[in-house]
Amino acid sequence: MKLIKSLTIIVVAVLLTQCYPEGLVYVDEADIVYTNYDPEYDFTAEQTYALPDKIMKIDDKLVQGKDTTFIKDEYATVILERLSKNLKEYGWTETTIDNNPDVLIAPAVYELTTYSYDWWPYYDWWYDPYYPGGGWYYPYQVVSSYSTGTLVVNMVDPTDVGANDRPRVAWVLAINGLLQGSVSSFNARVEKGIDQSFKQSTYLTK
């Protein structure tokens, strides 16, 4: 009787303390790909895009008014080339910002814990000739904030200016979790994430 009672108590204790199912195991499982688009925007009518040659950081220093900083070129190259590859596969043509592209592809990496999505005045290093009002607007609901390590890419139509003189964002992608984990895993994960964002955005196809 005593032995059975003792064994029962041990089994109960083990079940209650040791057997909770596991959660995230590998860092790439933390990656989430989010996309959203303006359903009223006619993607088929647009043909050309332009990309910057750097990717800016949105971090505490930027918010405090200090100079814009950028992510390392080795990372930026991977991101920009993958964006361009997918856009070309969907029938878009790359051009420079001086040739009046139909849309601008504007990537940035958030290094803040959280940051609101709907106001983004820190892009004048690149878009200033096109966006005198500063920032842009989303005609649709997007996530309320991005956490640290999120790559956010906006597809902006510089000729379609809406509320507060801000240009319209036709499409947005966000890949969360990229800044966690080792550098060696970064390339594969960012490529997988960008590929997935286009795979789930077939409305971008020409």
Binding site: G23, L24, E29, D31, I32, V33, Y34, T35, N36, Y37, D38, P39, Y140, Q141, V142, Q196, Q200, S201
Partner: peptide, 12 residues
């Protein structure tokens, strides 16, 4: 997917 938004990832 919900509306125009799509989210992809591993869920626990």
């Amino acid at each position: 997917s919900q509306g125009t938004a799509t989210l992809t990832g591993v869920q626990y």
